[in-house]
Design a binder for these strands. Structure first.
Lengths: 353, 353
DNA sequence: TTGTAAGCGTTATCAG
DNA sequence: CTGATAACGCTTACAA
C-alpha cells in the first residue's frame, strides 16, 4: 500500500529520477531500465502521490467543478458530460456543491487554486451587480499563481468582463420562443416565475419573456413576475400567489422543477391544465416527461454542455486555445407537451436518468 | 493571489513556524504576535496550500466519496447529507462517480489514498464473490500508509469480512414487506426485476422477495426473476419480457427508476395498473411521486444515510470510534401509492429535489 | 542516458 | 514562546 518512488527505485535498482522519467514519460529512458522500472512499478502497484508531484510540478491532472446543488437533476447530466470527457483526457474531476451559497463558492474556488487543480468549471452565483463581484470575476479571469495560470470555464453565465470562457444556452431566445408559444396558444395574460434573479441566466429568461410579451403587444405587469428559487416548492408557492390574484391564463417558469410545483398548485385549485392555465418550464429534465400533464419546456443539451465545457477547458489547459474568453451559445429547442397543448407529446424519458 | 507562508511571515515580522502555529493552533503563540500574524494573514488573504500541508502532515481535511453515478437521483440526497455534515465539521468533500465500473472505483480509491484524504465513503461495486474482491475488501479495511490509517465507511453493502463500517437500509426486510404487501393485495404470481446482482443490496432485496413468496406458499419461478441494471430503460425492457411471458400480475422492481420503466411498458401494453398488473419500487425517490399511477415503494432515509455515514466517518477519523467495523441498519418504510392500491397516496413530493 | 541534488510550501522537531 | 532546520515525495535542472 502506498509505496514511494524510493522503493520503486530500490527494487528496480535505479535512481528515483529514472523512475520519475518513466512515470512522466518526459525524458527518454533506455529500453532496459524502462523494463525494470515498469516491472517494479507493477509489482508494487505504485502510483505517484498526487500531492507531492503536484506540489513540485504545479500540475494535478485534476479539474475542479463547482455546481450549485447535488439535488438539482439538471447537474446529473452536466457532470456526466464533464466526467466522460475529462477522464478520457487523463484528468480526474473533483466536484463541490456550493449549496447555493456564493461564499461557499468563493471558498471552493480558493481551495481549488491552492490545490492547484489544472482548471475549473463553475456555475457561479455571483450576480455581477455587487461591486465586489466584478473584482471576483476579474480574479476568476486570472486564477493561478506565479507558476501557472488556471483557466476557468463558466456555465450558464458570462463572468463579467473577465477573460473567461462561458458555455451557455440561448436563454433569452429560448424564453422568447416559449413565451411566444404560449401566446400562439391564445394566451394573453401570461405570468413568469423566475429563478433567482441574481443568476444571469434567470435575468435573460425574464428578458426573453418580457420581449415576447412586448412584441405581441401584450401587457406585462410586475404582479405577473414572481421570484422563485429553482426549487419545486418555490414554484408551488409562487403559483399559489398567482392563483390568488386570479387573472393569468398561462405561466412560464424559469425551470422544470418550479413548473412542476406550479402544476401541482394549479391542479389543487381545481383548474384544468392547459385549458384554464397553461404551464411551461425550462431545461427539459426527465421529470418534465413524467408528470401529468407532461410539461412543455425548452430542451437544454445538458450532457453536451458538460462535454463542451470540459473540452474547452482542456484545450485552455493545453494552450491549444489562447486569447480572450469566448462565449459559446448552445442551441435549445421548444418541446411542446400537454401542459400547453393537449396534442403535445407525453412520452416518458427513460434514457437520461 | 496564492501567497505563501513566507510572505505572511515577512509581513508580520515573524518566522514561518510562528505563522504555522497560528494557522494550525496547535502550539501557543503570544497575544502580541498572534495579532500581527492574523493581521498579515487577513491582509494577504492567505490560506495554506493544502498540497504542501497535506504532504507534510498527512492530513487533508478532505473526505473522498465514491458513488456509482451522478445521474442517479438517489445520490443527490445522500451527497447532500454527507456534505452538510462534513462541512460542518471542517472538512471538504471530493466526489467521484465510478460510472458503474469497479475498475474506476478501485482507481479512485487508490487516488484517495495517495491524496491522503482523511476518510472515504464508498458505494462499492465489488460483488464480494470474486476471489480478488475479498483482497480488495481487506485492503479497504486497512487503507492508508505507514503514517496514517484512512477509515472507510461503506454504503449499502458490507465490505466482506473487512473491518469497515457499513451504513445500509434493511434491504431484505423491506423487500419482504413490499412483497408481502403485493401478496396482501391478492397477487400470487409476482415477478421481481432485480438490480445488478453483483451488488449486495440487490441480492438482499431478491432474498427478501423470495422469502416472502415462500412464506406465503407461493411459487417462485426463475422466469419471474429478471435482471436490470437500476436504469429506467432496463426496467422497461425487462418488463416487456415479463409481459410477453404474460403470466404475472404484480412486479416488484429493485429500485424506483426500473419500476417507472416497468410502468411505462405496462401502460403501453394496454393493461391497467394496478388492476391488471401492480408495480412496486424501492427507494422512494421523488419521481415515484410524480408518475401516474404514483409508485408504491420503500422509503429509504437517503439524507440520513449520508449524515450517518459522514458522522461515523468523522468519529473514526478522530479516533472517537475504534475497534471492528460495525453495521448500522436504517429503518425503512412501506409507502403505499396507486401502483398497487387505487386508494394509495398520490401527493407529489416537492421537497426533496 | 543516468544520477545527484535542489527545491515546491508546509509542519514537526528541537534548540534557544 | 520563538525560530532554525529537517523532512514529506516528487519533479527538474544540471552534472556526470
Amino acid at each position: 500500500m502506498s509505496n514511494s518512488i524510493t522503493e520503486v527505485a530500490a527494487l528496480a535498482g535505479v535512481s528515483i529520477s529514472t523512475v520519475s522519467n518513466v512515470m512522466t514519460g518526459k525524458k527518454a529512458v533506455s529500453k532496459e531500465l524502462e523494463k525494470r522500472v515498469q516491472a517494479a512499478i507493477h509489482q508494487l502497484g505504485y502510483t505517484a502521490n498526487p500531492m507531492a508531484s503536484g506540489l513540485r510540478s504545479n500540475r494535478t491532472n485534476t479539474i475542479g467543478v463547482i455546481i450549485t446543488s447535488f439535488q438539482r437533476v439538471f447537474f446529473g447530466q452536466v457532470l456526466k458530460g464533464i466526467q466522460d470527457t475529462v477522464v478520457n483526457a487523463g484528468y480526474m474531476v473533483c466536484v463541490f456543491d456550493s449549496n447555493n451559497s456564493l461564499s461557499n463558492e468563493k471558498r471552493y474556488v480558493k481551495y481549488f487554486v491552492n490545490s492547484m487543480v489544472d482548471g475549473v468549471i463553475l456555475l457561479s452565483l455571483a450576480n455581477g451587480v455587487d461591486p465586489e463581484d466584478e473584482a471576483y470575476f476579474k480574479m476568476l479571469g486570472s486564477l493561478g499563481n506565479k507558476h501557472k495560470r488556471i483557466p476557468v470555464v463558466g456555465l450558464e453565465r458570462t463572468l463579467g468582463s473577465a477573460d473567461v470562457d462561458a458555455i451557455m444556452s440561448d436563454n433569452r431566445l429560448a424564453a422568447y420562443i416559449v413565451t411566444q408559444h404560449l401566446i400562439e396558444c391564445g394566451h394573453k395574460r401570461i405570468a413568469h416565475i423566475a429563478g433567482p434573479l441574481t443568476m444571469e441566466m434567470c435575468q435573460l429568461r425574464l428578458l426573453g419573456y418580457q420581449q415576447a410579451m412586448k412584441d405581441a403587444g401584450l401587457e406585462t405587469s410586475p404582479k405577473w413576475i414572481k421570484k422563485g428559487n429553482f426549487s419545486p416548492i418555490s414554484g408551488y408557492i409562487e403559483m399559489g400567489e398567482l392563483i390568488r390574484q386570479g387573472d393569468c391564463t398561462a405561466v412560464f417558469a424559469g425551470n422544470d422543477p418550479m413548473a412542476i410545483g406550479a402544476i401541482k398548485a394549479i391542479k389543487e385549485s381545481g383548474q384544468r391544465i392547459p385549458e384554464d392555465i397553461a404551464v411551461a418550464g425550462f431545461d427539459n429534465t426527465f421529470p418534465s416527461t413524467l408528470v401529468s400533464p407532461s410539461l412543455t419546456t425548452i430542451n437544454v443539451p445538458t450532457y453536451q454542455l458538460g462535454v463542451i465545457a470540459a473540452n474547452r477547458l482542456i484545450k485552455r489547459i493545453n494552450g491549444e486555445i489562447v486569447g480572450p474568453g469566448q462565449k459559446v451559445i448552445l442551441k435549445t429547442q421548444l418541446i411542446v407537451r400537454q401542459s400547453t397543448d393537449v396534442k403535445g407529446d407525453h412520452t416518458w424519458d427513460l434514457n437520461s436518468w
